[in-house]
């Protein structure tokens, strides 16, 4: 069973429908029950909205957060999407005082506003739209056929891991490289939205549901 963790935010329906559209035979359950998360074979944490709300529901002291952390430590495949990536780190400038899961050292920073591109156009925040994603090396979930390697981003914050080797894919925000994905062992997490990225996104999800890590 694949558990989609409901932290009370975001468009969970799209994530559930996209996972079902991969054709997986594994049941997909949207849940806020820590026991369901513990029983699941795979865990997906999506989320848009505010880091603080997410951290309150999923932080290290919350039962749901502990179930997620235990699953990660126990080797269960984890897919984080957007806030589901950011919450893996210690804290976010979006919500000071709300600790994340702290699975990895590092912090989530605001994208700089007021910057301009080479044509002197304002670079807008939130960063909304399609970007090419460059995967570092290879990854069985993140690699999709090159021509399709476009994903949809919507974010104002990005993760800066203390250990740069966690960064599995990057994209660009103006001249600033941003963390597009982190990966280690059984954890893969993306800043972009595979559930909104048409064929490329479905391919990534298909690879996650089949992933033997």
């Amino acid at each position: 069973m694949i558990a989609i963790v409901d932290a009370g935010l975001g468009n969970l329906r799209s994530v559930a429908k996209a996972l079902e559209a991969t054709g997986t035979l594994q049941p997909v359950r949207v849940t806020s029950d820590p026991q369901v998360v513990r029983d699941a074979d795979r865990v997906v944490v999506p989320g848009q909205g505010a880091f603080g709300d997410c951290a309150s529901a999923l932080g290290p002291e919350a039962p749901l957060g502990r179930a997620i952390s235990d699953g990660i430590q126990g080797g269960k495949p984890y897919l984080g999407i957007c806030l589901g990536l950011q919450v893996l780190f210690e804290s976010s400038e979006e919500s000071p005082g709300h600790p994340g899961l702290g699975i990895y050292r590092g912090h989530v920073r605001r994208l700089p506003s007021g910057t301009r591109d080479e044509n002197d156009r304002r670079i807008k925040v939130p960063h909304i739209g399609w970007s090419r994603v460059a995967v570092r090396g290879t990854h069985p979930v993140l690699d999709v056929p090159t021509a399709d390697n476009w994903f949809y981003f919507v974010h104002s914050f990005h993760a800066q891991p203390a250990d740069e080797s966690l960064i599995a894919a990057v994209s660009a925000f103006g001249s600033l490289p941003v963390t597009a994905a982190v990966a280690r062992d059984n954890v893969v997490a993306v800043q972009y939205h595979p559930e909104k990225s048409q064929a490329a996104g479905l391919e990534l999800l298909r690879q996650f549901v089949a992933w033997r890590c």
């Binding site: 468009n11 329906r13 799209s14 429908k17 996209a18 559209a21 949809y152 919507v154 939205h193 559930e195 909104k196 990225s197 048409q198 996104g201 479905l202």
Partner: peptide
């Protein structure tokens, strides 16, 4: 919207 979001995976 619900029926669209079941079939179409775009913003």
């Amino acid at each position: 919207i619900a029926r669209t979001a079941e079939q179409v995976f775009m913003p």
